[in-house]
């Protein structure tokens, strides 16, 4: 997407690899935050601000406000269920059947999510925030579970009981995208490690 700059964890984990421990991305943030910040400033200085159609804004407002009606499903209950599913079945040590059932549960919750609504007004309505957040949480959860099912190996913080070994064939990144209402996924190979870095680390680390 042109004009989108990223740094840190979301910038595809440049130096942490598959190891996703808290604080690991700090170096990423510092180095690539500076670089992407500078690049973004340069990029923005010779671009005009994009025009947004009023109808698009109105559409988004309508989408947000569509959650505001009494009598629907309480979003907090769905958040609780999602939290429980994710922490019980998609923890650090995972296995195939659990991941499959978690995916089923998430798809069920997605159906349920269509019925979510909250009472109250627009002012400081925490329920409304939660209803909006829940949509994003479900997308993120589905992406996590789907890619965890796809990756049939153990690497870094992703440990699978049914595939406990690191697999050379999985030197790939998984990418997901939206097509209609469904999630599509594919893999792209990870760029080869530069020679000068190969000298610094043991071969089993990067294989």
């Amino acid at each position: 997407m042109p004009g989108l700059f990223a740094a840190g964890e979301v910038a595809c984990g440049l130096h942490g690899g598959a190891n996703r421990l808290g604080g690991n991305s700090l170096a990423d943030i510092l180095v690539f935050g500076k670089r992407s910040g500078e690049a973004a400033a340069k990029y923005a200085s010779d671009k005009k601000i994009a025009e947004i159609e009023d109808s698009e804004v109105q559409e988004e407002i309508n989408r947000v406000l569509s959650y505001l009606k009494p009598g629907g499903v309480n979003p907090y209950l769905l958040v609780d269920e999602l939290t429980e599913t994710m922490s019980n079945k998609v923890g650090i040590v995972r296995n195939g059947p659990d991941l499959e059932s978690a995916l089923q549960k998430i798809l069920e919750l997605k159906e349920e999510y269509k019925k979510v609504s909250v009472p109250g007004g627009r002012k400081y309505n925490h329920g409304l925030f939660t209803a909006l957040e829940l949509g994003n949480m479900l997308i993120a959860a589905e992406a996590i579970v789907r890619s965890a099912i796809m990756r049939t190996e153990s690497r870094g913080a992703h440990t699978r009981k049914d595939y406990p070994k690191k697999d050379r064939n999985w030197l790939k990144n998984i990418i997901l995208w939206k097509e209609g209402d469904t999630m599509k996924m594919d893999t792209v190979p990870v760029p080869e490690m530069p020679e000068e870095l190969k000298k610094l680390v043991k071969p089993e680390v990067y294989q």
Binding site: N74, P75, Y76, L77, D80, V118, P119, G120, G121, K123, Y124, N125, H126, G127, T130
Partner: peptide, 12 residues
């Protein structure tokens, strides 16, 4: 209270 009883309760 906010989650189980009344979701309209505003807190920060």
């Amino acid at each position: 209270v906010q989650e189980k009883i009344d979701t309209t309760l505003a807190i920060r």
